[in-house]
Write a protein that binds this DNA or RNA. Structure first.
Lengths: 247, 247
DNA sequence: CGTTCATTTGAGCCGACTCAAAATGGGTGG
DNA sequence: CCACCCATTTTGAGTCGGCTCAAATGAACG
């Protein structure tokens, strides 16, 4: 698997059906029975594409479908009144997008592609029909939302507790783990987002993020060349994170 | 309505049925048809009580029911490895508890009462049965989770952007608005949580929180006597919040 | 090879933290 | 009712991490 890219090389662009999709265990059909997965599959529009910078969803737009990224990566953010971006996180293949839209029926965040991106689309109307007759999908949707909530809480906790290096370490460790789950190398990867994006995500300035990378490099924990990252000592990063919440 | 207490005086202790409950519009039956609400009501165990400090749910415990606070208030938190509390937020009447448990089937946070508290309980088994036949409840559950997610994202963004006073101002404004929605005065209320709890929630120290209160008092925006708060100039607090995310 | 943008590095400053002590308030028992 | 005790909150002084402003370096693309 290509270690320099992040999600582009999954071969998913070629409209693989859900049952053969490499992301299946990470995606909605992951915990469904074969029969339920088939029903879901027939309702999903696959193989949609987007150029870098393109908007997957726009804040305030009506939530007319559930979207899942298939390859590539994206940035979730909202625009503040000052016009700056508040970066909520980054989306990897197999992850759903815009779930906060269930609150009001309108998306709460912008999501835009950081790389050439492909995604699947499940219209809300069909989702509701499927929920009517697929108990597994009902459970899966609750699980998905619960997971998103759990993750958001965890991130919030991290911001409240960790210092700059701790946040960056956690960001890297988290990304590494998520890439690993998708079959990419957890040790060598290329960041698809800028330092500024990382900074806005972590509540830091881009200079501080850069300095944290510099420290990790100097300590021999990381090799950094622009956006290419090699994790040499994951334990060292993990040790820095500390303050892990239990449960 | 008693302005000195926060949720104690709703009269909800007396096991009011959902259809007459003052919290109905804030609670699960809020958007259901009368028929659906009746079906839900028959599955809900009402009028359970808890003493201050008592645990509503424990992190790691199996999520066997959906709980909604009916009167009183609670604190959501996780314990870090160092033994400190990471405070995720505070629960007011009409708010559900432990939704992040849907992720794994086990609760992710501790929730403990800050005051004498009463709550309602909907066993998971019954919830699943109801979801099978109540489309409105399906939508409502997704809405509930979406809302919790949206709120968590918003809070995370705030931590990343705002300084100490901005965070405290936002905390007060948020609490004030939530109390108002429950029929309490948004201008006069008594905090059920300590400065330390607020601080851990906002990623600050208790001294810094206290100083923020001091500043607001000195500016004439607030009257503060221990935990009794009078909001004299809500606009001033709102102005301090700034950086509001749109959407 | 030059332009442009992203990233790194440096110097100085400010806000929030730490440590420490005083004050306030609530609750208890005499 | 008052005196006392305890926990909580407020206030003060000094330090440090991360921010701001600014310049240099490096990478990507035509």
């Amino acid at each position: 698997m290509n270690s320099r890219s992040e999600g582009i090389e999954t071969g998913a662009r070629a409209c693989v059906p859900c049952c053969n999709c490499a992301l299946k265990p990470l995606c909605l059909p992951g915990h469904l029975s074969a029969q339920e997965a088939r029903a879901l599959e027939s309702a999903v529009e696959r193989g949609r594409e987007l150029a870098p910078g393109g908007a997957l969803v726009r804040a305030g737009a009506s939530m007319d479908a559930l979207l899942v990224v298939r390859s590539g990566s994206a940035k979730r953010f909202t625009l503040t009144l000052e016009g700056t971006e508040q970066v909520h996180g980054f989306v990897l293949p197999g992850e759903a997008v815009g779930l906060e839209g269930f609150a009001t029926g309108r998306y709460g965040c912008e999501v835009s592609a950081l790389e050439p991106l492909s995604y699947c689309r499940l219209p809300m109307r069909k989702l509701e029909q499927l929920l009517e007759r697929l108990p597994g999908l009902r459970r899966e949707m609750l699980r998905l939302l619960g997971q998103a909530l759990d993750e958001a809480l965890r991130l919030r906790g991290e911001l409240a507790e960790a210092d700059a290096r701790g946040r960056v370490a956690r960001f890297l460790a988290d990304l590494s783990a998520r890439l690993a789950r998708r079959g990419f190398s957890p040790h060598e990867f290329r960041l698809s987002m800028s330092r500024a994006d990382i900074a806005r995500h972590l509540g830091l300035t881009l200079e501080t993020v850069s300095r944290a990378f510099g420290t990790f490099k100097r300590e021999g924990w990381l090799r950094v060349r622009a956006r290419d990252i090699s994790v040499l000592r994951p334990e060292a990063l993990a040790a820095l994170i500390g303050a892990r919440s239990c449960g």
